[in-house]
């Protein structure tokens, strides 16, 4: 389902990260970075909610508003019962919608907020998203201090909180259109190869978006996928060409941009709901403000699995949502 927007803008963004992202190549585009994965909190779950709270605080300061001026807070994360978002929201006291679409949550939140703004149900909203490496490792994989070897296709969950402020005031970046994706499942069961799991969903959403709006792939300066990683990126390119006959030339993946893949211990690249917004709100928006790139299609991809279904040998379904971002002329 593709929707066009007339008056929705991402006015401002804020990004808080953990230590690995701080040492990555895009560190200069982040607002705040912690040197310790505990982020001055007692547990990893609390640390993750702190990332959201910090991002919202920085964002409110940037737009010179208080929390009473915000109509809605939309948030999501990877943890069970989206607990990081819930904890953060309990201190923010802003009307709150909690979402889960795994790593596609960031774009899902923006689409919901944008639709409500376009319908004039709300004046503005804050969309936040977070992920925390150790909290995710503990829940989905092995204990944090366990050093069992992992395959090369494993992705490294990003630690970060990202917040953006949406309204109908014309400033910042224009949200031009969005596409809500369908859930795809091509039978991949390997929880250590998320790129392969999510590539079909990304391809399908890109194809539908282009078809619905009758656009060619070179309409966009850059097409960005969320967190396919080094190998998922190659899979998507070949799958896109074979299945839809679309050659993705102007394409990149945020998972491969956020870390220095050669020198950081991140296997195939970053992942997690925060991966795509960290790169987009930071580096991409900066490039857009400088008018170096004008049209961006952001496709956030999510693997919708749980450890129980993986152990039950079920294949992993995946989802991708897309938003088209434009520089205001």
């Amino acid at each position: 389902m593709t929707t066009k927007y007339n008056n929705v803008y991402i006015n401002e963004t804020a990004i808080v990260t953990g230590p690995y992202e701080k040492k990555g190549p895009l560190h200069s585009y982040f607002d705040k970075g912690y040197d310790d994965l505990y982020c001055d909190s007692k547990t990893f779950e609390q640390a993750e909610s702190k990332l959201i709270i910090d991002a919202v605080d920085i964002l409110l300061e940037k737009i010179n508003k208080t929390r009473f001026d915000i109509d809605l807070h939309i948030s999501g994360d990877l943890l069970n019962q989206i607990v990081a978002s819930n904890l953060a929201s309990s201190t923010l006291e802003i009307p709150y919608l909690g979402l889960y679409n795994a790593c596609a949550t960031s774009v899902e939140g923006i689409i919901i907020g944008a639709n409500m703004i376009e319908a004039r149900q709300i004046k503005n909203c804050i969309c936040t998203v977070s992920s925390h490496n150790n909290a995710a490792e503990k829940q989905f994989r092995y204990p944090v201090e366990y050093g069992g070897p992992k395959p090369k296709t494993t992705t490294f969950t990003t630690t970060g909180g990202a917040a953006c402020f949406l309204s109908y005031n014309k400033s910042g970046i224009k949200l031009e259109s969005s596409t809500i994706g369908i859930v795809k499942d091509l039978g991949i069961k390997d929880a250590y190869n998320m790129g392969a799991v999510m590539a079909p969903a990304a391809a399908d959403t890109i194809y539908r978006h282009l078809k619905d709006l009758k656009r060619e792939v070179n309409y966009y300066d850059v097409i960005l996928t969320g967190d396919l990683g080094k190998y998922g990126k190659k899979i998507l390119k070949e799958y896109m060409l074979k299945e839809y006959n679309i050659d993705l030339k102007n394409y990149n993946d945020t998972a491969t941009m956020i870390y220095d893949l050669d020198n950081q211990p991140v296997y195939a690249g970053g992942s997690g709901p925060a991966c795509a917004p960290l790169v987009t709100y930071g580096y991409i928006f900066n490039q857009m403000c400088k008018k170096k790139i004008k049209r961006v299609l952001l496709v956030a991809t999510g693997a919708l699995h749980s450890t129980s279904t993986v152990n039950q040998k079920l294949s992993i379904p995946s989802i991708a949502h897309a938003i088209s971002l434009e520089v205001i002329e």
Partner: peptide, 23 residues
């Protein structure tokens, strides 16, 4: 695309672990 065909693409781009070195 059929699942089998897609899994072939995945297999093509999945790096092999160096078993001899690891061993």
């Amino acid at each position: 695309m059929e699942r089998k065909k897609y899994q072939e693409i995945v297999k093509k781009y999945t790096p092999k672990e160096n078993r001899i070195y690891n061993g």
